[in-house]
Simulated assay, not measured.
Amino acid sequence: MPVPIIGFVPQPTLEDAEMENTMSQHGMTGLSQLSVSINYTLWRNPGDRSDPVNLAELDEPTRRALDEPAPQPRPAWLIEMAERRRYPMLWEAVRTTWTRDASEFSTPTRLLIDHADHILMNQFREELGLGDMGIDRFISPLTEKTVNRDAVVTVEGVEMPALEIDTDPFVYAIGAELSSDTVLTAVVPRDALQHIRIEFARRHSATG
């Protein structure tokens, strides 16, 4: 990543899952855009991780698969990954996007809407009445008119102008232009908002 990766500020309710999602675009002269998204495990009661309130709502097949003993020994990383499925995840919650050459598709507004659409389409299919992936065409409820351009967000301890989508019933989204080539966006399910401080900083981890 040509620029620092941004994430939520450290807070007890969020645990960086150390699993990034990346997206890239290439043009005639090489890499033109790169995005890195951070996933988080959500702890509703971080003071007692054994509290059942921390568990995700799982369907019976998933719960049974997690509870059944493995037919053969598994490496520690695979065991840890399986155990994470017991807890709610904020998938691709915070995204840093670097763009080499600006275009209509790389504006902060466009990137914020695209990020929110991505989460809605992949995480809220049932709520939106969509069928299996690839069957029903997703029609975004978000447009430039749904974006509030008078928001403020704190990044690295400094307040800065931000864009905000606070009209969708399923997600809250916020973004900011960090520099001429870098945009921060974040999309959070509404039922998780009460547990999160919406503030950002450079990510410090083994991979970032």
Rank of each mutant, 00 (worst) to 15 (best):
E68R: 15
R197Y: 01
R125W: 09
A206N: 08
M19W: 08
K145Q: 12
E126A: 14
R84M: 13
V3D: 07
G131D: 09
I198L: 15
F105C: 00
S106D: 06
W98D: 00
P52A: 03
H195E: 03
V152Y: 04
W43E: 03
P141T: 04
F170V: 01
V155G: 07
D117N: 15
E177T: 13
G30L: 10
G7F: 02
T62W: 00
E92K: 15
D48T: 03
V152H: 11
L120Q: 05
Q33M: 15
L14W: 04
A17W: 01
L90S: 02
N39A: 06
L58P: 11
L14Q: 07
S37L: 07
P169R: 06
G30W: 13
M23Y: 13
T109S: 12
S32Q: 14
V36P: 00
W43F: 15
E68L: 14
M19R: 10
L120S: 04
P12H: 08
P108E: 10
L120G: 03
L142K: 13
Y87A: 06
E15I: 01
P10E: 03
I135V: 14
T41A: 08
R190G: 00
E92T: 05
T96M: 04
H26R: 12
I174L: 11
S24K: 12
Q123M: 09
T96H: 06
G208F: 07
R137V: 09
S32D: 09
N39E: 00
I113W: 02
F124P: 14
A70F: 02
F124I: 09
I198W: 01
S50G: 11
T182N: 06
M1Y: 04
V153N: 02
D150T: 12
T154G: 02
P71F: 08
T97M: 05
V187P: 01
E20R: 08
R63Q: 15
P169G: 07
M1E: 10
P52Y: 05
A151G: 05
A201R: 03
F8L: 01
E127D: 15
E164F: 05
G30P: 12
M1W: 05
T99K: 11
F124N: 10
R137P: 00
D59I: 06
E159K: 14
D101P: 00
L128I: 13
S103F: 03
T185Q: 07
E104S: 13
H26N: 07
P69R: 02
L90F: 00
R202W: 01
P189H: 04
L112E: 03
S50K: 15
N21H: 12
I139Q: 13
Q194M: 08
A65E: 13
D191Q: 12
P46F: 02
T41R: 15
Y87I: 08
T107N: 07
L78H: 10
P12Q: 10
G47M: 06
D16A: 02
R49K: 15
E18K: 01
D101H: 09
P73K: 15
P69I: 13
T143K: 15
L193E: 14
Y40D: 03
R63T: 02
P46T: 01
V183F: 00
M19K: 11
F138V: 10
P141V: 02
S179C: 06
T99I: 05
